[in-house]
Amino acid sequence: MYAYDTITEAVSDLKKRGYTKDFNIRENRLACDQLDTHFGHEDFEIIEVYRFEGPSDPADEAIVYAIEAPSGALGILVNGYGMYADENNSEFLQQLHERVRLKS
């Protein structure tokens, strides 16, 4: 596992290592516009996870996920947590967090 000091550093290095697709959470699904598809919480593999906590700014709290889609495509999901978490996708995020805990 790699160690990064910033979210930008993590995303930049992951992209260099082939994680070039951008994933987002929409309607409790993982979506990738570049692949024109979406996935349920168990339809992809979480390869790496990096958590960042801002020392003084809650806006800096985020988790970076390195993800592999069933097709083998690699991408990144950056998701805020804490006071800036997206409540509209709370079910998906809860399932995502449970998968990360099981993987550890």
Rank of each mutant, 00 (worst) to 15 (best):
M1I: 02
M1V: 11
Y2R: 15
A3K: 11
Y4G: 01
D5M: 07
T6G: 12
T6K: 11
T6V: 14
I7S: 03
T8L: 07
A10V: 07
A10K: 09
A10Y: 06
A10W: 06
A10P: 15
V11W: 03
S12Q: 12
S12N: 07
D13E: 09
D13C: 08
D13V: 04
L14R: 13
L14K: 05
K15W: 09
K15L: 05
K15S: 12
K16L: 07
K16H: 09
G18T: 01
Y19I: 00
T20W: 01
T20D: 07
T20Q: 03
K21D: 00
F23E: 04
N24F: 13
N24P: 00
R26V: 14
R26G: 05
E27N: 11
E27I: 07
R29F: 10
R29M: 08
L30Y: 03
L30E: 05
L30K: 08
A31Y: 15
C32A: 08
Q34A: 08
L35D: 05
D36G: 08
T37P: 02
H38G: 06
F39G: 13
G40I: 00
G40A: 10
H41Q: 06
H41V: 03
H41I: 05
E42M: 03
E42Q: 15
F44I: 08
F44E: 06
E45D: 05
I46V: 11
E48A: 04
V49E: 06
Y50W: 10
R51M: 04
R51P: 00
E53S: 10
P55E: 04
P58V: 10
P58E: 10
A59C: 02
A59R: 14
A59I: 04
A62H: 09
Y65P: 00
Y65T: 01
A66N: 10
E68F: 01
E68H: 04
E68A: 14
A69I: 02
A69C: 07
G72F: 03
G72E: 09
A73H: 09
A73T: 01
A73V: 00
A73M: 12
A73N: 11
G75R: 09
I76K: 06
L77V: 02
L77K: 11
L77N: 04
L77F: 06
L77H: 10
G80S: 15
G80P: 15
Y81A: 01
Y81W: 06
Y81I: 04
M83Q: 10
M83S: 07
Y84P: 08
Y84E: 03
A85S: 15
N88M: 09
E91K: 14
E91T: 09
F92H: 13
F92S: 08
L93K: 08
Q95I: 04
L96H: 05
L96A: 10
H97Q: 12
H97C: 02
H97E: 10
E98M: 11
E98R: 15
E98S: 15
E98D: 15
R99H: 14
R99Y: 05
V100S: 07
V100L: 11
V100I: 15
R101D: 02
R101M: 05
L102I: 01
K103S: 05
K103L: 07
K103W: 01
S104Y: 04
S104H: 07
S104W: 05
